[in-house]
Each structure stands twice: as C-alpha cells, then as structure tokens.
C-alpha cells in the first residue's frame, strides 16, 4: 500500500472538517474523491500534503508516517496541486517550473523533467517567458500541474483541477491525467465534476460532511443510483430549470 489514512479527524477551531476518515491508495492507481462543496475534500489533501492543521489520526506513506511539514512531504515524493492553482503570478512560467523543482540538485534531471512537462503541455513552452499572471485560466492550471510534476512526485494530489475551465479544456486536461498515470505516477483527484472523475478513476470515494459514505470502483459508482441522484444529477437539474 502506498498511502494509508487512518481515523483522520481535522478541526478548524470548533468546526470539524473530517471525522475519523480512513482511506487508502495503492501504487499506480487513479483514485478520485468526490463530494459537494464543503465536504472536506481540500482538507484531506492539505492534511496529506503536510499543511499545518489541528488533527489527529495517522497518515502513512510507503510504510512510514508523514510529518506535518510541507517541505518534508515533497521530499518523500508527494506533490499537491492546490485548489485555485496558486501559481506565482510575479514569476515567469519557466521560473514557476524551477520553483517546482526546488529540491532537485541535479541539473540534468531538471532539464529532462522540464522537457517532459513541455512535451505534456506544449502551451507552457510557448509561454515560458511570460509571467504567470498573464496566463489564461486553463494555462494557469496546466502550469500548476506542470509545476507539481517538476518535483518528480510518486503521488500527485490534484485539488479540483477542472474548476472554472471550459468543458472542452476539462476533457483535454483529464486526458493528460491518464498520460501522467501511465508515466508511473499515482494520482489522488478531488473533484466536484464527478462524472468525468469517476470515468477516469480506478477506484473512488464519496465524501459527505467529513465522512466517507461510499467507495468502490469508478465505473460501479457511476452506475450507482444514489451517486447518480446526488452527484451526477446536474444535467437533469439544469434541464428542468
């Protein structure tokens, strides 16, 4: 097992965001975590990534516990692509990617990684000298993902990468996730865009107010009437309006 989360509870003051949550990820999987706004999806990713949170329970990665320090987590091989992209708007695209490889001391490895990111997202290569703030939303998302890849992670955590993107771009980016997975990375994908996330994933979890209420294979959850009703109903609702 690559990552194991056991009885994880997280609090923001008096608000409890996660309630004894347990989950696991195996090497090579694409796992998605779906759930409504406020369910606790981002909180789970932040806890794994080592952001300072008031929490108890345990998170182990490759058999060893993770400490709550983001720079240590990156060293262990986990990268978080945060919700809202958080690219460095004052740095160029190239510099953003250099920041992603901050711990990489080997120049040759850096060059190879940079090339593979540019190959995955040719748009970033075209825009490499532009500052981050001048990119479009889709380009910023590509940059955030590319920057995450630059640390050579084993496990990539993606927090709502489809947020605010046009449907066509979403499909394009989801295809890249499959490609990244084939390159050998394990992916934990958090999405409100449940249909595409479930279709892409090997396994998935459904999160509601801090608890896992369902889990199973991606395709089984896609066919699950309750999941359809609660998370895949957007189309019917939109049609009814």
């Amino acid at each position: 097992m690559m990552l194991q989360v056991k009885d994880l509870s997280v609090f923001y003051g008096k608000i409890q965001a996660l309630d004894k949550l347990s989950m696991e990820i195996h090497q090579g999987e694409i796992i998605s975590m779906i759930g409504a706004n406020g369910a606790g999806k981002s909180t789970l990713l932040k806890a794994i990534a080592g952001l300072r949170l008031q929490m108890n329970g345990s998170i182990t990665f490759e058999g060893e516990p993770l400490v709550s320090k983001t720079h240590e987590t990156v060293k262990r091989g986990i990268a978080l692509v945060p919700e809202g992209r958080h690219i460095f708007g004052n740095l160029t695209v190239y510099e953003n990617l250099v920041m992603g490889s901050y711990l990489q001391k080997d120049k040759k490895v850096f060059k190879e990684d940079l090339e593979s990111v540019y190959e995955l997202f040719p748009r970033l290569f075209e825009r490499q000298k532009q500052t981050g703030s001048t990119l479009s939303g889709g380009e910023q998302q590509m940059l955030a993902i590319g920057r995450g890849l630059m640390s050579k992670p084993k496990l990539l955590l993606l927090d709502e990468p489809s947020l605010g993107l046009a449907p066509k771009l979403v499909s394009e980016i989801f295809k890249k996730f499959e490609k990244i997975n084939k390159m050998g990375l394990t992916i934990l994908l958090v999405e409100q865009n449940a249909r595409q996330a479930l279709a892409l994933s090997h396994r998935a979890y459904v999160l509601q107010t801090g608890r896992i209420i369902k889990q199973g294979l991606g395709k089984d959850l896609l066919a699950d009437p309750e999941v359809q009703e609660a998370y895949l109903g957007a189309k019917q609702k939109a049609a009814a309006v």
Partner: peptide, 8 residues
C-alpha cells in the same frame, strides 16, 4: 504557503 508546497 505555496512556496512551502514546492519543498522550500
């Protein structure tokens, strides 16, 4: 905070 996510 994001600088921390880069391993700094």
């Amino acid at each position: 905070e994001t600088v921390g996510l880069m391993g700094v």
